[in-house]
């Protein structure tokens, strides 16, 4: 049974209509396969890896566990809304500078989680950061360069805030 009437999602500030989705499609699937926004990743589809992290009305959630149609009318922000080439956000730049990117599959989810963390807590201590990203599995880096990137991004954000 397809949902012939479709529904619309607000993604990165734009209204996007979704047609022909099957019942049960997750927000992750719709973003990736129907809206061409493949930056959110599909590593487990059971909420255990954080690779699909997006902001839903400002809260970070696993988009694999959001029923797409039930997100209609809510604000979705994906990695594609965080910053783009030539206009990278502080966290994205920090990842590059710190060497926090290897295979990169966990990277978008981690960036979303860290961006939200720093928004709520501009100067988090080590344990706070580790807990905040404990839902984002990374298999390449052992987290060392990622933690360094968080420090760099926090410094950049504070420098920005206190001219």
């Amino acid at each position: 049974m397809t949902n012939e009437s479709g529904f619309s999602l607000s993604v990165n500030g734009r209204s996007r209509s979704v047609v022909d989705a099957l019942p049960g499609e997750s927000l992750l699937f719709v973003l990736r396969e129907r809206l061409g926004l493949a930056g959110s990743k599909n590593a487990c589809e059971e909420g255990e890896c954080g690779s699909c992290t997006v902001r839903l009305d400002d809260e970070t959630v696993c988009s694999c566990l959001v029923l797409a149609e039930a997100a209609a009318g809510r604000q979705v922000m994906t990695i594609e809304g965080l910053g783009s080439e030539g206009d990278l956000s502080d966290v994205q730049q920090a990842f590059l500078d710190a060497g926090a990117v290897q295979c990169g599959f966990c990277t978008p989810g981690l960036l979303m989680a860290i961006d939200a963390l720093l928004e709520n807590d501009p100067d988090p201590d080590d344990l706070t950061v580790r807990e905040a990203i404990s839902g984002n599995l990374c298999r390449c880096t052992g987290y060392g360069r990622i933690l360094d990137a968080v420090d760099r991004a926090a410094e950049a954000r504070q420098a920005e805030a206190t001219p």
Binding site: R32, E33, G36, L37, A38, G39, S40, K41, N42, T78, I79, E80, L82, G83, S84, E85, L88, Q92, F95, L96, G99, V101, G104, F105, T107, P108, L111
Partner: peptide
Amino acid sequence: ENAPRPDGVPKVTGDFAFSSDLH
């Protein structure tokens, strides 16, 4: 030197095409 990764920027913007992103 710590040369930048050529795939770094697309990997932080979500533009890098992994095998599961093919369409």
